[in-house]
Design a protein around this nucleic acid. Sequence first.
RNA 1: CGGGGAGUAGCGCAGCCUGGUAGCGCACCUGGUUUGGGACCAGGGGGUCGAAGGUUCGAAUCCUUUCUCCCCGACCA
Length: 431
Amino acid sequence: MKYSNFFIPTLKDAPSDAEIISHKMMIRAGMIKQSSAGIYSWLPLGLLVLKKIEQIVREEQNNAGAIELLMPTIQSSDLWVKSGRYDDYGKEMLRITDRSGREMLYGPTNEELITDIFQSHINSYKDLPKNLYHIQWKFRDELRPRFGVMRGREFLMKDNYSFDLNETEAKKSYDNMFRAYIRTFIRMGLTPISLRAETGPIGGNLSHEFQIIAKTGESQLYYDKKLETLNPNTIDPNELQSFYAAVDEQHDDNKCPISRDDLKISKGIEVGHIFYFGTKYSEKLNAFVQDQNGKNIPVHMGSYGIGVSRLVGAIIEAYHDENGIKWPLEVAPFKISIINLMPGDQDCDTKSLEYYEYFMKNNVEVIFDDRICSIGKKLSDNELIGTPFQIIIGKRDLKNNLVEFKNRQNNEIQKISCNDVINFVNNKLKK
RNA sequence: CGGGGAGUAGCGCAGCCUGGUAGCGCACCUGGUUUGGGACCAGGGGGUCGAAGGUUCGAAUCCUUUCUCCCCGACCA
């Protein structure tokens, strides 16, 4: 992508509306534009990141055996009346009347719909277990939207629903998702902390929330330091669930079961939540299967959410400095910026283009800053948008056959011989 | 929903108290000079001052109503 052809409307000053870091940075980096309270347009750069995160979530769901489908954003009130939640949900649910006077709603979640889909097609224990998910926009008319995309009213969420014959099987599905969640967040470069959670209005008796560590997070977390160094390939959910982790209100220094040396304290942001709620919805919405004995029994269900759009903000909260965003490689909108400091200079142009074309050919996401503007603006814009690796090409170094390589993670700059650039960068990308 | 604050050019703000027909910085356009960290000089474009009503010879400014947005709190991916 050539910067000059792309659309990244960066700002020097964030609008006074924005309060927290990620919100300010997303606006300054031209990732989003607020449309109304808690509702945002995703501009091209923001969309690239959103799609990256969505894709990681999708791949890890698929790896865990979940099946993707897509349910609508607008739902009829019928099923909600049946489940009893049409009244329970209250004002947080956006209600709409269509032209024939039917009561519709913009879905805040999808338990009712999925259970209905399940019950119309699945009748036998032989078809279990099933785990279905979708990644879809939701709307919750929050009392008070805030923090940019971290608590919008409209948000993109991955939610899935497991269906099992009994509680034992359901716990297996639960643990399977638990494992998938840990892997998902680690893959995004984050440090997930899983906490036993209250089940809240969704109901049920087993629930964990997943927070990621960020200096600017909302909740204070207390947890076993072992949680910081998980190997995504050898996760044992039962073992992991036994590790100590608590939020501020739950934690009591005197009753804490682990030693002071093992206890870590940090801020966190909630990005996922999983629930096992047994037969609550299956009974109301008629999701029964016949077991081996021909007896009709309600299926045991769980639901599992990841805030996809929230993660964009959360990752920025975890990875930024005063000059901008520092994307982890896996979610970066571009992996490399090629910055031509002197467009118009033949040597700079030729060299920049050479690298740009190489990376394009090799399917490495690259943005080529070919804009004609001051050097300071170029360097600071690229810092702001947070590309992990930058190749900086200027006249001065090029005379000595050198370019600069900048690692946004630590802002270290190395001078590299022009001939070694490709190999050098390829090595960095592999790690 | 309770408490607090803000709406003036794309963004950040001043002007309001004490009414006289709108200004600054950044951004944008033109020309020139620059060229390794948000450049400089000169010229230029852009605002029914959130909306409606009222007071007045005259309203961004005073009064009333209303809409929107933000912050703190209780709730949530």
